[in-house]
Nucleic acid binder design. Structure first.
Lengths: 341, 341
DNA sequence: TTGTAGGCGTTATCAG
DNA sequence: CTGATAACGCCTACAA
């Protein structure tokens, strides 16, 4: 039996050239079987495979990137690397990319278009092969421009163009679903805590709310709509405000789960019980919502799945195919924070 | 005024060579001022700076990596990219690295030593300049071996060696702190839900608990210690078990916040109130704990700060200096989930 | 202080 | 099917 590691035979990095020499072929031939670029005789292939195993050769992605122009890496711009909502999406991207030999390069834009532009510059300078932009703030035009240079998959907006693919969740339908659930339980005084108006998805959720009310013949009461910004604190503050205003309501629909946590805390502090006194529904179904007390009713948005889809889409584009993925429809998740009036 | 982008003058990538030509100097001179490798006359420096601005030149990290052996990227192995505890640490790393022109390369090992080994291989093949390993599962020896090739900063263990630096949190002290808090409130029947025994930090927290009990002269009751695995579900199940056993207890110390959420839910479902019926304390102080109802008392572990420290440490090592950073001491955070007996 | 030449490890383009 | 021979864009001796 041969020793598993004959690395010591000759020091220095194990290069393709060394493999070629050992196998008695030219470097180009080794490269060919590595990339499947051309057909190689079984004889040489075998010799090369053995040499590779013997040397424990592993191609150098950096050199590959320089020579071939492909780095096998995908830039992923997210808004915050530690976002409870996007986290699972990042994991999905990682999983999907990994199984194809690609690596993600994560950067956070912190909801700032300027930062986002810089992030993309960094990513491009690092020669990523493609880009995934999760709910970015850059203009459609800016996106289209960079799409001229490398394929992009975006979420959170509808946009078409060469080298551009969008994967969008139906926030409007989700908003309708949540509101209708509350209405079906007998609620008519339903408050709404909105997300940041700068987010298109936040507006869509609001539109779902107003539409569902209208469909049910419930008059819209602007005083029942309080602005939030998707952060927990804002849900807390908004609910405090609602309570202080003495406006009557029996249910609250928060534009995302995190604000619902804030709302729950506000209610708890005022001695109000969920759902006995006030029903509460969120949006997104982040992991935690299953375990808060009481578990939160919400609209399920498949973040992990979304991550996988964006990744497989960019991979398809890289392979020269047109992606066909589509986001699953919103789904109502009924747990213990909503009850009959 | 000149047009800001004269890229169109000549197509193709803006290379260092182009800059050199425009500035009327040799490529090496451009390289020199780019890296501060040598002193250059003010005259040429100015010409080069102008040429760089004019062309909008940006060095190609890939080529740099090949030629110089440095990629200006740091591999970061974490256990799960979407972990609520490590998330802020990743952000800290990102922030710190970014300000030094470095980029993090995140990979998830999913608490599996084999996967972790593969992750490190990927990172090394991508020629990262250094490694940060957050609470890894690899053996000290394995770590020491790869530290021969590139500098490593690890958290969650004590280990010394060339090219190796450890940043460890005092979990034992934290465990003592939490338990003493409960004791000071008059509790004597204190249950403990442990973390996975495979995690050294989990065992340290448990040791803190038993030690504090002993110091207070409270007999240790093995029936009050229930195994968990750091996941929410296990906190829920463990509390269910505790309740079903009919053993008396007035407080629960969970080895991390997430299990405390599970415990809170279990109590809530049984109609028990926190903290009126049972006091609850967690560990870690993840972001959410401030907003659960009721806000959770816990031990603060500065994850973001830890991220920054690991990053600045690796940067110091890269600069040839010995890192001196140390983790802040554990801190007791008293919120609304613990009360006098 | 500055330029020239060679090389980093692969891939791509040619011939053969 | 296979092997030279150039790049890829930058860095680093070495020489001047």
């Amino acid at each position: 039996m041969k020793s598993k590691r004959s690395e010591n035979t000759k020091s220095g990095p194990v290069t393709l050239e060394r493999v070629a020499k050992l196998a008695g072929v030219s470097p180009s031939t080794v490269s060919r079987i590595l990339n499947g670029t051309a057909v190689v005789s079984d004889e040489k292939r075998k010799a090369i495979d053995e040499a590779i195993a013997e040397l424990g050769f592993v191609p150098n992605p950096v050199a590959r990137g320089l020579a071939g122009g492909r780095t096998l890496s995908i830039g992923v711009v997210t808004q915050a690397i530690d976002s409870p909502f996007y986290g699972p999406a990042l994991r999905g991207i990682e999983d999907e990319l990994d199984s194809a030999g690609y690596s993600p390069l994560f950067v956070s834009a912190h909801w700032d278009p300027t930062t986002e532009g810089r992030c993309i510059d960094v990513l491009r300078s690092r020669r990523v092969d493609g880009l995934i932009v999760l709910n970015g703030r850059l203009s459609d035009q800016a996106l289209k421009n960079t799409a001229k240079h490398l394929p992009i998959v975006v979420t959170g907006r509808n946009i078409k163009g060469a080298g551009l693919f969008a994967l969008n969740f139906d926030n409007f339908a989700g908003g309708v679903l949540a509101t209708e659930h509350l209405i079906s339980l007998g609620h008519r005084k339903i408050a709404f805590i909105s997300g940041d108006a700068a987010h298109p998805d936040a507006n869509e959720r609001l539109r779902g709310y107003t539409t569902a009310l209208k469909n049910a013949g419930i008059p819209f009461d602007a005083n029942l709509v309080v602005p939030g910004d998707y952060q927990v604190e804002s849900g807390l503050a908004a609910t405090d405000l609602l309570l202080a205003s003495r406006r009557k309501f029996t249910a609250i629909f928060c534009a995302n789960d995190q604000m619902a946590y804030g709302a729950a805390l506000s209610l708890h502090r005022k001695g109000l019980r969920t759902p006995e006194d006030v029903s509460l529904i969120g949006f997104d179904d982040i992991y935690h919502s299953l375990y808060v007390a009481p578990p939160l009713s919400t609209i399920h948005q498949p973040a992990y799945e979304m991550g996988r889809l964006t990744a497989s889409s960019i991979l398809q584009m890289l392979a020269g195919n047109k992606p066909t993925a589509a986001m699953p429809a919103p789904e109502l998740i009924i747990r213990e924070s909503t009850a009959k009036l």
